[in-house]
Design a protein around this nucleic acid. Structure first.
Lengths: 158, 158
DNA sequence: GCTTGACCTAGAGCCGACTCTAGATCCTAG
DNA sequence: CTAGGATCTAGAGTCGGCTCTAGGTCAAGC
């Protein structure tokens, strides 16, 4: 039963999160951490396991396309402590919706990509040609104004 | 049987693709189009249906995360005409793989997000609390160096 | 004849998310 | 004592992908 509190240097945290030390400092500076990292002698950052856990959450949210401002809002809510669970829920649900539709869009795109792959495969090996179908067809551009956005929200209309 | 060749102004193409006129000129300038757009009187761009179709493909590839350089390579291959189908196939397969793993990653992230949503839901309505499981758990940071990249390739090691 | 609006080119500016640099501090090993 | 390596801060630079501006041309309508 040793090791009551893990204490990691920024370098160690960088190693095990995959974030660069620069990014770690940047994240802290941007207020993405629930609490500003503890400092050891000489003003050096000392990370706890909690910090690493939180960073892991951050990384996953980032990887799913959550922009830093949203991450900051979330961190703020968590920092304020219990009582704002509704807001957190809203934020997470919004992100969930975002990720879900993003997956849907990617799946649609994949449909075209598979179609193209099939076409080229057939061209290169015409014997075993199957007939391919692309359900999100190229012909005739989308009637809906296309609204294909990789990011979060439409920022400004053109 | 009128209308043998569609001729659209850049504004019309912008409308029906959702790209801005700026983006359209930019794409052309960047060599993303199979052939440089025809010009009408006064040097104005005149788009054909083929151009629009190609742009639609571009939009889908972009929406699935293909970077402009890859799109340019693809356009170059198509421009060169028949004979390089292998290369096109390779390019498309690579992109397919990329999109597939991206969908996988997003699904993993979604797992955590759903978990969080569940936790907050329970907190706000403890009666109907279920037990939640997050299969890509927060506890204990990933042993693998995390390599969560939203974009295409690792550009430069830190 | 003049205004309006869509278009043209070349190039500057912007945004998000880092990444890198400079110059200083500190700890450890030789 | 000193050299090396990890850390610190503040701020500049980078990159991708557009977006915007300036300054100019052209056709149509009043």
């Amino acid at each position: 039963m040793a090791e009551v509190t893990t204490s990691l240097s920024i370098g160690q945290v960088a190693e095990r999160t995959g974030l660069s030390v620069h990014a770690l400092r940047y994240y802290e500076h941007e207020g993405l951490l629930v609490n500003p990292v503890r400092r050891g002698p000489g003003g050096r950052r000392v990370y706890s396991q909690d910090d690493v856990d939180w960073l892991t959450v951050c990384i996953i949210l980032r990887a799913s396309g959550m922009p830093l401002p949203a991450l900051r809002r979330y961190a703020n809510l968590v920092r304020q402590g219990a009582g704002n669970e509704e807001e957190r829920l809203t934020l997470m649900r919004e992100h969930q919706a975002h990720v879900t539709t993003q997956i849907g869009k990617l799946a649609e795109c994949l449909d075209l990509i598979r179609f193209k792959v099939g076409v080229y495969e057939d061209l290169l090996d015409p014997d075993s040609a199957g007939d391919h179908q692309c359900h999100a067809p190229i012909p005739s551009a989308p009637a809906q104004p296309t609204e294909i956005r990789i990011g979060y929200a439409r920022v400004s209309g053109s």
